[in-house]
């Protein structure tokens, strides 16, 4: 705790560069970067925005991701898709569980980050616990939703005919603005549990935990490119998220009507699935269910004649 406290103080007093209390050790402020293709690059644009605490002090310089960063992430997601979708459901389940395990081990760090952004200690702990539990919840679904939502179809002719869900593909996600950690995990988990790969634009005002979480992902056997995490401005990036021709679906979680309309219009360029998840209270258990997985699935039906 001591190191974190002193680090905070240092940042407050001018980005950690000039002053230091003689009594404490000089701490190492973290550089918050993007997470693309299993790596932590700065935005190629070189741009940033300042994140402030309640008192108006600068907490961090956050990368302001560009269209190019997004396109790189899409290329990585497309490349990662076949490997991720092909993994056995059991394996995907274990990887999601592994994310939960790794996250649990970083409890102090994540709670500190949540508090830095202004969350109270008790709220931060609640959000953290729900976040881990949500990952465990979706880890469990990885090898079950197929069974619940598949069918063997009794066709009139002599055919063996069955239908089952397959991942929609590359998904761009605009994560909720509130609950920086829980919101991100609640929308990302059903997406990757279903074998999709994704690019997530995280909360603009609460991005710290998302970057912490990227480190968790990085340490949890998730192949590079399966989840890319971008920080930046929604009003700048949303149209690219919606109109990219190699993205198969977009998930939108905000409430701005005009923005939603524009997103849906742009999604039509390639018949992109435009999914809106903005009616959930992410802290509520009703915000987790397999129908969210199914929103990002396609049903494939296969026929074969029965005979000799």
């Amino acid at each position: 705790m001591n190191t974190i406290e002193s680090k905070t103080k240092i940042i407050k007093s001018g980005n950690g560069m000039n002053s230091e209390k003689k009594t404490s050790r000089l701490s190492i402020p973290k550089t918050y970067k993007l997470y693309i293709n299993g790596k932590f690059p700065r935005t190629e644009s070189g741009r940033y925005y300042k994140l402030h605490d309640k008192e108006g002090n600068v907490i961090a310089n956050i990368c302001r991701a560009s269209r190019k960063d997004f396109r790189d992430a899409v290329a990585a997601a497309r490349k990662a898709l076949s490997e991720w979708a092909k993994k056995s459901a059991y394996n995907r389940s274990q990887i999601l569980y592994r994310i939960a395990e790794t996250l649990e081990g970083r409890k102090m760090q994540l709670i500190e980050s949540l508090m830095k952004e202004g969350t109270t200690a008790s709220e931060a702990e609640t959000e953290f616990n729900l976040s881990v539990d949500r990952l465990v919840y979706y880890a469990g679904w990885c090898d079950k939703y197929h069974q619940v939502f598949s069918s063997v179809n009794p066709t009139e002719g002599s055919y063996f005919n069955f239908s089952f869900p397959e991942p929609t593909g590359v998904v761009s996600i605009v994560a909720p603005e509130h609950n920086g950690l829980l919101g991100l995990i609640s929308v990302m988990a059903p997406c990757i549990a279903g074998g999709n790969t994704c690019i997530v634009l995280v909360s603009q005002q609460h991005p710290l935990t998302a970057i912490d979480f990227a480190e968790v992902i990085h340490a949890s056997d998730v192949p590079g490119g399966v989840i890319s995490i971008l920080t930046g401005f929604k009003n700048e990036l949303l149209s690219h998220f919606a109109s990219h021709m190699d993205v198969n679906a977009i998930v939108y979680t905000h409430h701005e009507k005009e923005e939603l309309k524009k997103m849906e219009e742009q999604a039509s360029v390639n018949v992109k699935r435009a999914i809106t998840w903005n009616k959930f209270n992410w802290k509520d258990s009703s915000a987790q269910n397999p129908y969210l997985i199914m929103d990002l699935q396609e049903i494939k039906t296969t026929w074969h004649p029965v005979g000799i």
Partner: peptide
């Protein structure tokens, strides 16, 4: 081949 019980799309 098509059938009412068989999803299409």
């Amino acid at each position: 081949k098509f059938d009412p019980t068989s999803p299409f799309g």
